[in-house]
Amino acid sequence: MKQQTFLPLQIHWKYRYCHGGSLRNSAKGRGARPLSTKDPIHLVFKVNKVAVKSGLRHPRHFTLMNRVLKRYAAKFFVKIEQFSILKDHVHLLIRGGRRSRLLSFMRVVAGQFAQGLTDTPNVKNEGPRVWEQRPFSRVIKGYRPYRIVRDYIQLNECEVNGRPYSKNRLRGLSSEQLEELWA
C-alpha cells in the first residue's frame, strides 16, 4: 500500500490552472502555482479593507501601485498587457518569460506596495495585513477565455470611471456594447 503523503494531490479539473485567493482555504488551491511562459496569466491582488481604508483609487495609493507595477515589470521582464486598479483589488493580464521571474514579480509587487503603503521598509508592520489573501492567478488557455478576461478587466476599468454596474455584466453584452466598452 502506498503512503498517502506521496500520492499526488488530486485537483478538480476546473481548478487545474488556478491558484491562490479564496481557493487557498480549501485543498483546491494548494500545491504549486501553475504558471505558463507561453500563455497569458490573469492575476488578482485583493487588499484588506481594514488596512487600506481609503482604497486603492486614492491618488497616493493609485500612483504608488502604478509606479511599482511599471518598475518591477521592466525589472523582471514581465509584459503587462492590461491592468485595472479598483477600490479593493487589482486585475492584471500579464505574460512572462521564466517561471522564476513571474514568481519574483508577484512576490516583489505585493511586498513593495505593502511597504510603501505602511511606510515600513525596514521595520515589521504591527498593524493589520495589507493583503487579504494570496494573489489569485489563472493561466488563460485559448483565445476565447483570453477575450473574456480582457473584456472583464476593461469592464471593471469602465465601471470605476463611471459606467453603471450591471448584474449580468459580460453575459448579456451585445457586439455594439462590446465596441462601446473599448471606445
Rank of each mutant, 00 (worst) to 15 (best):
P40F: 12
D39I: 03
H61D: 04
L56Q: 07
T63M: 08
F76L: 06
L56I: 00
A73L: 05
K38L: 07
R71M: 04
V47T: 13
V44G: 08
L64M: 15
L56T: 01
R67L: 02
D39R: 15
A27R: 07
V47W: 08
K70I: 00
F77A: 14
L64S: 06
K53L: 08
D39T: 11
R33L: 07
I41S: 08
H61I: 01
H58V: 03
H58G: 06
H42C: 13
A51H: 02
K49H: 12
L35P: 14
M65H: 02
K28E: 07
L35H: 11
K49C: 12
A74L: 09
F62D: 11
F77Q: 13
F77K: 14
F62N: 12
I41W: 07
T63L: 09
R60G: 06
L69T: 02
G55C: 08
H42A: 12
L69M: 07
V50P: 00
F62H: 15
S36W: 04
Y72M: 08
F45Y: 15
V44C: 05
R57E: 00
R57H: 03
K28R: 12
F45R: 08
Y72C: 09
D39C: 14
G31F: 02
K53C: 00
V47R: 00
L56F: 05
F45P: 15
P40E: 12
V44Y: 02
H42S: 13
P59A: 14
F45H: 11
A27F: 03
K75F: 06
L35I: 15
V47Q: 11
K75R: 15
R57C: 09
T63G: 01
V50C: 07
R33D: 04
S36R: 14
K75C: 12
K70C: 06
G29I: 05
F76P: 11
V47S: 09
P59R: 15
N48P: 03
T63N: 06
K38D: 10
R71P: 02
V50H: 10
N48S: 14
K49R: 15
K53Q: 11
N48G: 11
V68Q: 01
N48R: 10
Y72Q: 01
K38Q: 11
K49S: 14
L69K: 05
A51M: 11
S36M: 11
R60P: 00
L56E: 03
A51R: 01
L64E: 04
R71V: 04
S26W: 01
L64I: 06
H42P: 01
R30I: 04
Y72A: 03
L35K: 06
S26E: 01
S26R: 01
P34W: 09
G55D: 02
A27W: 03
V68G: 02
K38P: 02
M65S: 05
S54I: 06
K46R: 15
T63E: 12
L64K: 10
H61P: 04
V50G: 05
V52M: 09
A27H: 10
R30F: 00
A73S: 15
K38S: 10
A27N: 05
P34F: 08
R71W: 01
R60L: 00
R67N: 13
K70L: 10
H61R: 04
H58T: 10
H42V: 09
P40S: 15
F45Q: 04
M65G: 02
P59I: 13
V44M: 10
H58W: 05
I41V: 15
K70Y: 00
F76V: 12
L69R: 08
K46E: 12
